[in-house]
């Protein structure tokens, strides 16, 4: 336990959708400068959890504290104001607008009622440089950017409100190897800037590569909180699937053969 107050502390969160108990007694903590991975099978409740934190959904039981203060967001805007930025999986960018326009969409700098393009462009470069982002020009339409570059713009956009916590939903799902590495670098850059990061991903390799801690959800319940660097893929998979002798972990064990040691969870 670190002595500092966590950026995000959820205790005993439960959420029910009609007949579906989507989340039951979930506890999750993210500290400043910490990257926490959130993994789980399809339907485990990852998106529900993200939506609750970002104010899209309400929750039935439990408490959420942001930087030590108890909160309950009624809208995504309220969560944003409280310092929680979310990069949704579909990125929400306008292909036809350039990078600057996308970064500032809905929160443009004005000068006498007129768009202040110079100030916005300057701020865009500052922001992208702080992320060491590889963007050829901030004046080309998003349509001309690669998947990794788009993800970069979406993440940069989420940083405009100076958040304390950034949540990323499957940021590498549609990316190639090099672009995935680019985004992982970006996540490390966020950690250096002392932001808390909550990373939802299906890729064990990505989560293991970048996360300090990995939180597993299974059927809406906590199924373990693992150290990012020293946890094997098999351990994670058995936590995700809930058994050490099922088809997935058998395959994983067979494939890695005598490779890595298996740590029972």
């Amino acid at each position: 336990m670190t002595p500092t107050t966590p950026v995000l502390e959820m205790t005993g969160i439960s959420k029910r959708f009609g007949a579906v108990q989507a989340l039951t007694d979930v506890n999750l903590t993210v500290h400043a400068g910490e990257v926490v991975g959130l993994v789980g099978d399809n339907g485990a409740g990852k998106s529900t959890l993200i939506n609750i934190i970002s104010g899209v959904h309400s929750f039935d039981e439990g408490t959420i504290a942001v930087s030590g203060e108890r909160v309950s967001f009624s809208s995504p805007q309220a969560a944003q104001r409280a310092g929680i930025a979310t990069v949704f999986q579909d990125l929400s960018l306008c292909d036809n607008l350039d990078v600057v326009a996308n970064l500032f969409l809905g929160q443009e700098f004005l000068m006498g009622g007129v768009l202040d393009e110079v100030a916005m462009e300057k701020k865009s470069w500052d922001l992208l440089r702080s992320l060491s982002a590889k963007i050829p020009s901030v004046r080309i339409p998003i349509a001309a950017l690669s998947g990794g570059q788009r993800q970069t713009v979406a993440i940069a956009r989420s940083l405009l409100g100076s958040p304390a916590l950034v949540m990323l939903d499957e940021p590498t799902a549609a990316l190639g190897v090099a672009q995935t590495a680019e985004v992982l670098n970006l996540i490390e850059r966020l950690r250096e800037q002392k932001l808390g990061v909550l990373l939802v991903s299906h890729s064990m390799a990505d989560v293991q590569a970048v996360c300090d801690r990995i939180h597993v959800l299974r059927l809406g319940k906590d199924a373990g909180d693992f150290d990012g660097a020293n946890t094997s893929t098999e351990t994670l998979i058995s936590a995700i699937t809930g058994a050490s002798d099922n088809v997935v972990s058998q395959r994983a064990a067979k494939n890695s053969l005598a490779g890595t040691e298996r740590t029972p969870s």
């Binding site: 579909d90 960018l93 607008l97 969409l105 809905g106 929160q107 443009e108």
Partner: peptide, 17 residues
């Protein structure tokens, strides 16, 4: 700018407020 945004991606425009 809002007109272009709505024409480009309605959902993104909506989420941007």
């Amino acid at each position: 700018r809002a007109i272009y945004a709505v024409g480009g991606n309605v959902e993104a425009a909506r989420r941007s407020g």
